[in-house]
């Protein structure tokens, strides 16, 4: 789980081309949007791409996206939940 969270942070930094931010700067439980990492709602599309491209998890519904993309913890938990459903 910790590896997954760290990889997610690396992928977010790369996909959003975040400058001067390292995975260590991103807390697991702080909001990624607005007050946390400072992403805006449109940046959510890149997070959706990460979920699809690397983990095969599609998020098309905005209300689900709002909950799942809230933090690193919620993203990692959703990936694990979806992977468990596949097995």
């Amino acid at each position: 789980m910790e590896n997954l969270k760290y990889t997610l942070k690396e992928q977010i930094i790369a996909e959003l081309n975040l400058q001067d931010i390292t995975p260590e700067d991103i807390e697991d439980d702080t909001p990624l949007f607005v007050e946390g990492l400072g992403l805006d709602s449109i940046d959510a599309l890149e997070l959706v791409v990460i979920m699809e491209k690397y983990y095969g998890v599609a998020i098309t519904d905005e209300s689900i996206g709002e909950k799942v993309l809230y933090s690193i913890n919620t993203m990692a938990a959703y990936i694990q939940e979806k992977n468990a459903e596949k097995q």
């Binding site: 709602s41 449109i42 959510a44 599309l45 890149e46 959706v48 791409v49 699809e52 998020i59 098309t60 519904d61 905005e62 996206g65």
Partner: peptide
């Protein structure tokens, strides 16, 4: 279409 969430499209 790369991805879509609600009315947002990449």
């Amino acid at each position: 279409l790369v991805t879509q969430m609600g009315n947002m499209f990449l």
